[in-house]
Amino acid sequence: MRKTTVLTATAVLLLAGAAPSIAATQDPRPSSYQLTGDPGGSRFEGIGADQRRGLFYVSETTGGEIHRGSAGHAVTEEWLAGDGTDGRFTARGITVDAAGRVYVAGGPNGIGTGRPDLWVYAPDGSLLAALRAPGNDVFLNDVAIGPDGAAYFTNSNDPQVFRVADDGDGWDAALWADATGTVERRTGFNLGGIVLTADRTAFVVAQGNTGQLWRFDTRSGAVTEVRTRGADLVNADGLVRRGGTLTVVRNFSRMLATLRLSADGRTAELVRQQATDPDRVLTTAKALRGRVLYVDSKFDEQVASGPYEVVTSPFAR
């Protein structure tokens, strides 16, 4: 019996010495994702990625709704209601752990109200915990998973990081690191974006109002400044680390900074600064299955209007 070889169109082109066409090689996934807004206007901020399931979650600051999307579909859904659901009237940073649990930072949700500062949800959307962080002036901004599997939340009002976990006695939020005396509290947003270093020995945390990066040792909580050789990172918001590359989303500066970050997070060398789309204020971003997804916040609009989007290209359309 004669064997028959079946070649794909791309293979035929390669064998013939021709390059594949754009249509044969382009990513079939959407270049942007549509978010559902409120009739009176919506603003968005945080994004978390579930690498295993190919899902992402986006927080709405106006109401606290949590939206969920899939890497392969252009339209997202409202996953969790806001406007007081579980005591949540606003939401900021989001992350997802290896078990698919979703952690949500509440920003100013609990300041002067007694409401929760953060929430933990199971993959099916059921509430696991709604917690207050220690203190009365806590603005939880962003969150990352540590090497111990716990979630670590930054405080934009004071130089603090809180640890949230269920270590066997129920869910608890505790002050993990206090950098008072090392990191100066300034007017505006202080600690924000947070990522784990490549060697998992530290978190790199952005201080947006000063443009500094800080290294929080994961074992001791000791804090030192990341040496950036004076790179301009003012308005640093979201951080994305992929290997040794650190991307800094500089919201109202409308810039994207790319730095080469050492494995231990002690040094970061600026590679380039690029202007982002002038019609958007991008806040934060997450890598999901080979691409980076950026949140268009609508923070620059007095009365926000659609389209509301998560985009894969931060640059001008």
Rank of each mutant, 00 (worst) to 15 (best):
G290S: 11
R289Y: 04
V292N: 13
K286V: 15
L288M: 10
Q302K: 15
S297Q: 05
K286F: 01
G306Q: 09
F299Y: 12
D296F: 02
L282Y: 09
S313V: 02
L288Y: 08
E301L: 12
K298M: 03
Q302G: 12
S313M: 08
V295N: 03
Y308H: 05
A285I: 07
A285M: 09
R289I: 09
D296C: 03
T283L: 05
A304Y: 03
F299T: 07
V295A: 04
Y294P: 02
S305G: 14
P307A: 07
V281S: 13
G290H: 11
A304F: 06
E309T: 13
G290C: 10
E301V: 05
A304R: 04
A285V: 08
K298D: 03
V303D: 05
Y308Q: 06
G290Y: 10
A304D: 02
Q302D: 14
V281L: 14
Y308M: 02
L288F: 03
R289L: 12
E301N: 06
V292P: 13
T283F: 01
L293H: 10
R291T: 11
S297H: 04
V310H: 00
G306D: 04
S305F: 12
V311G: 02
T312W: 04
T312E: 01
D296V: 08
A285Y: 00
K298S: 05
E301I: 03
R280S: 13
A304S: 14
Q302E: 13
S313P: 00
A304M: 05
V310M: 00
Q302C: 05
A287Q: 14
Q302N: 14
S297C: 07
S313G: 08
V311E: 00
V295M: 07
L293I: 08
S297R: 00
V311F: 01
D300G: 14
L288E: 03
L293P: 01
P307S: 06
A287I: 09
Y308P: 06
P307D: 04
V303G: 05
T284S: 10
G306T: 08
F299L: 08
D296I: 04
R291G: 09
V311N: 02
V311H: 06
R280Q: 14
V295R: 06
K286L: 07
V303H: 11
Y308I: 02
R289H: 12
F299E: 00
T312C: 10
A287C: 10
R280G: 11
V292K: 11
Q302A: 15
S297K: 05
P307C: 06
V295W: 02
V295H: 01
P307V: 01
K298I: 00
V292Y: 10
L282Q: 09
V292M: 13
L293K: 10
K286N: 11
T312F: 03
R280A: 15
A285Q: 07
R280F: 12
L288H: 03
F299P: 10
L288Q: 09
G306P: 15
L288S: 07
G290K: 10
E309L: 15
S297L: 01
Y294K: 00
G290T: 11
E301W: 03
L293Q: 06
V303L: 13
D296G: 07
